[in-house]
């Protein structure tokens, strides 16, 4: 068993390196700095309090993201953002045959265009893309932290990517014509 001080030292050592990525993730979810700071602070306070229930040797990073995510989902912005969750039903749209190849299309996208498209995605879609492509979490980690089956991770991810692609396609092809 840890004494309290040893516990706190371990927590500090594990948690502080995650501050920058957690803050980035929180800001992408919440959309502004004040809420991002509140989310991250609440996450750290909750995590420190609950650290006794964290099983050493398991995935600490995923645990922290899960706390942050739950904190966000119960916040005002989070509740608003997830009300219209028509997620799993819409069909995935395939590009038309005469569209530009995506490899060439996306090579033209600059960072600002990618960011704007990402901002326009529904939160659940933005979130899963961030966890997979930015945080490089495995499907299993995402499934555990979001409390959904791996199959849902895969279908949600493919819908998220397809919305992202059609947003970009509209922007980029529209801009050129």
């Amino acid at each position: 068993m840890h004494d309290d001080r040893g516990n706190a030292e371990t927590f500090e050592a594990l948690a502080m390196p995650l501050l920058a990525p957690l803050y980035n993730f929180a800001h992408w979810l919440a959309g502004n700095r004040d809420e991002a700071e509140d989310l991250v602070q609440e996450t750290y306070v909750k995590a420190l309090k609950g650290f006794g229930s964290f099983t050493p040797g398991t995935n600490f990073r995923a645990w922290m993201y899960r706390i942050l995510r739950n904190t966000f989902l119960t916040s005002r912005t989070g509740l608003k953002a997830t009300v219209s969750l028509d997620d799993e039903e819409n069909p995935v749209t395939q590009p038309a045959a005469d569209d530009d190849p995506e490899s060439l299309l996306f090579a033209r996208a600059d960072q600002e265009e990618i960011r704007r498209a990402l901002e326009q995605l529904p939160v659940v879609h933005r979130e899963i893309i961030l966890l997979c492509d930015v945080e490089e979490m495995s499907y299993k980690e995402i499934a555990e932290l979001a409390g959904i089956p791996i199959g849902t991770v895969m279908s949600r991810l493919s819908r998220a990517r397809s919305s992202m692609r059609s947003l970009l396609r509209t922007k980029l092809q529209g801009a050129r014509q």
Binding site: A8, A20, N24, Y44, D133
Partner: peptide, 27 residues
């Protein structure tokens, strides 16, 4: 492109970092 555009896009301010640092530092 997503990785490039989105990672490290938002960075915690030094004040915020030290606030969190104090909150989790052993008493």
């Amino acid at each position: 492109s997503i990785k490039r555009a989105a990672s490290g896009r938002f960075v915690p301010s030094p004040e915020f970092r030290s606030r969190i640092g104090k909150a989790v530092a052993p008493r």
